[in-house]
């Protein structure tokens, strides 16, 4: 019996950790959706870019990879802003399908530019704390995962404060609630679009750093699946709802880990979609979703 509890508590912990990456991705997607009402299927490419930026700076400077959050996050904000300006702004309001299709083009460009720059071999970096473990209940867990969970919480709190306590954040929220109204109040909504897209990309970049630090390998094609799952999460959690994204992220992270524990690893990707489809059949707007959209 005690053995089973140990196993379950361990699996819960891995789920929690996996959830962190998804939550960061999903929060970004959600923010962008809230403001621009578009879905960026290429969001995973920002995650991938984040891992590569972390990798390059780590190899060049040898800094503590956690410090490199200060590199990946701002760089991705800039990349996000450029992407928004060049690819999404021109097609805003021209039809929902176009957004999906533009994302496909962006996926191809990002993946292969990265492959040209860094080759498409699998890369990995090591955390400086990789040998330190901490006991969590009855199991030993590496310190890194606590740091990762901690950083995720800090980022989310920071984001909350930014959105609620700064005028810029309030402007973003206003645009998200009522675009026309915001425009009438003198908010430059196009700037808000760029900013939001940048923040979303930055969160994905931070997720990329965490991905790399936790010792997971990465290559130019690794971004798509986590991003699609991130998207599944916001659908489960309800579009536009940050709390929903966090719950959804945890649900997916845990479900995946329990599925590979019970049904086998082959079902790991499929299970998030099964949950997604069930949720959509039961409630087409998502668990926490509002009436519209």
């Amino acid at each position: 019996m005690e053995g089973i509890i140990t196993i379950i508590s361990q699996v819960v912990f891995w789920g929690l950790y996996a959830g962190c990456i998804y939550i960061l991705l999903a929060t970004g997607l959600n923010l962008i959706f809230g403001v621009m009402k578009i879905v960026n299927f290429a969001h995973g490419e920002f995650l991938m870019l984040g891992t590569y930026i972390t990798f390059s700076f780590f190899v060049l400077s040898g800094f503590n990879p956690y410090v490199l959050l200060c590199a990946s996050l701002p760089i991705l904000v800039v990349v996000g802003i450029i992407t928004e300006r060049l690819c999404f702004r021109p097609i805003l309001g021209t039809g929902k399908l176009n957004e999906i299709f533009v994302s496909l083009g962006i996926i191809y460009v990002f993946q292969n530019v990265v492959a040209m720059l860094w080759t498409d071999e699998w890369k990995t970096i090591q955390s400086p704390y990789k040998d330190i473990t901490i006991s969590w209940g009855s199991v030993q867990v590496p310190l890194d995962y606590f740091i990762i969970i901690g950083i995720t919480i800090c980022i989310l709190i920071g984001l909350y404060l930014f959105l609620h306590r700064t005028s810029l954040g309030r402007a973003i929220r206003a645009t998200s609630q009522n675009r026309k109204g915001a425009m009438l109040m003198g908010i430059n909504v196009e700037q808000m679009d760029m900013l939001t897209f940048g923040i979303g990309a930055g969160l994905a970049g931070a997720a990329g750093t965490l991905w790399a630090v936790s010792g997971q390998v990465f290559n130019p094609y690794m971004g798509s699946i986590p991003a699609i799952k991130g998207f599944a999460i916001i659908i489960i959690g309800g579009l536009g709802s940050i709390a929903g994204a966090i719950v959804g992220g945890l649900i997916i992270g845990l479900a995946e880990n329990f599925t590979s524990f019970t049904l086998g690893g082959a079902w790991k990707d499929a299970v998030s979609f099964i949950i997604l489809i069930i949720v959509l059949i039961v409630k087409p707007t998502g668990l926490f979703g509002g009436k519209d959209e």
Binding site: I100, I235, L276
Partner: peptide
């Protein structure tokens, strides 16, 4: 399962079905 869904949901669900069916085929 899709007709009631908005475009994004639809895109996701169809994408998911491809993965689910592939998983079924191999397992």
């Amino acid at each position: 399962t899709c007709v009631r869904l908005r475009e994004w949901f639809l895109a996701m669900v169809t994408f998911g079905f491809a993965i689910i069916i592939q998983t079924l085929i191999v397992s």
